[in-house]
Write a protein that binds this DNA or RNA. Structure first.
Length: 229
DNA sequence: GCCATTTCACGGCCCCAAAT
DNA sequence: ATTTGGGGCCGTGAAATGGC
C-alpha cells in the first residue's frame, strides 16, 4: 500500500523548493533565500538555483509563504459587476497600488445582491485576505452582519462608491454626489439656465439617491419647481 | 463499527548553529 | 566573515491510532 510519503512524491504534484533543493543537492533554506534574493547567498548559488527553478517550472506557493509569515499579501475586491467604465477603472487603480506594495488582488462579483455578497465575503475571509474593498450591493444597506464579521476578524475593510450608514469604525471613500448635483444645478441656475436646471426629473438625473436629493435640494433652494417626475 | 483523539504532511520562511 | 544546513513553526485536513 502506498504511504503518505510516497503519495507526496506523486509526479502530478507541483514543483516545490524541496524539489529544486534535491536536484541541486542543497537545502531548502538555501533555495528559499536564493529565490528571494537575500544577501547572504553567493551569486553563483543564486544563479544555479534560479536556473534550475526555471527549468523545473517552479512557481512559489503564496499560501505556504503566507502561512509562515502570518500574512497573505492578498487583498479582496468585491464589485457589483464589471460592466461599464467605472468599476473596471477603479479596479485598475486598486491593482496598480496593490502591486506597487507587493500585494495580489482577488476580484469577485456580488451581482448587486446581498446573499451573493455574503458568500463572497466568506470566501475571501477563508482565503485569509488582509483587507476587503467593496462598494456594498444595493440590497446590503440594511443587512451588514457579514461586514461586521470582517471587522471582528481583524481584516481591513474599506468601502468605496457605496457604504452602509450604520457600520461604525469602517473607512469609506465616497463621491459627494449630493453636493455635486447641488453645485451643478446651482451653477446652471446662476448662469441663467433656469429651464434647463429643472427640465429633467430626478430619476433622469441619476440613479443615485444622493444625487437626486442634491438636485431636488438645489431646485428647492432656488425656488424652482421639481422636474418631470 | 463508531467516535474521539493524536499524528503527520504540506511549502516556505525564520533563526540559530556549523562549516569553510 | 561569509555561506549553508537544519529544525521549528504556521493552519488545515487526512490518516492513523486507541478506546468503547
Amino acid at each position: 500500500m502506498e504511504t503518505k510519503a510516497e503519495k507526496a512524491k506523486a509526479p502530478s504534484r507541483r514543483t516545490s523548493i524541496t524539489d529544486v533543493a534535491r536536484v541541486l543537492q542543497v537545502s531548502a533554506s538555501t533555495v528559499s533565500r536564493a529565490l528571494s534574493d537575500q544577501q547572504d547567498i553567493s551569486k553563483a548559488t543564486k544563479a544555479r538555483v534560479r536556473q534550475v527553478a526555471h527549468a523545473m517550472n517552479y512557481q512559489p506557493n503564496l499560501v505556504a509563504a503566507g502561512l509562515r509569515r502570518g500574512q497573505s499579501k492578498t487583498l479582496g475586491v468585491i464589485l457589483p459587476h464589471l460592466s461599464g467604465a467605472f468599476y473596471p477603472t477603479v479596479l485598475h487603480g486598486i491593482e496598480k497600488m496593490a502591486s506597487q506594495h507587493g500585494y495580489q488582488v482577488l476580484v469577485c462579483q456580488s451581482h448587486d445582491e446581498v446573499r451573493c455578497e455574503q458568500r463572497r465575503v466568506a470566501a475571501l475571509l477563508a482565503a485569509q485576505v488582509e483587507g476587503i474593498l467593496i462598494p456594498v450591493s444595493a440590497t446590503t444597506l440594511a443587512e451588514v452582519n457579514h461586514l461586521a464579521q470582517v471587522q471582528q476578524a481583524g481584516t481591513g475593510l474599506v468601502f468605496f462608491d457605496r457604504a452602509p450608514a450604520d457600520l461604525p469604525g469602517s473607512a469609506a471613500v465616497l463621491l459627494d454626489t449630493y453636493n455635486g448635483a447641488y453645485e451643478a444645478v446651482t451653477h446652471l441656475i446662476k448662469g441663467g439656465s433656469r429651464r434647463i436646471a429643472h427640465f429633467a426629473g430626478p430619476q433622469q438625473v441619476s440613479t443615485s439617491r444622493n444625487c437626486q436629493e442634491g438636485y431636488l435640494a438645489a431646485l428647492r433652494d432656488h425656488q424652482l419647481p421639481r422636474g418631470k417626475n
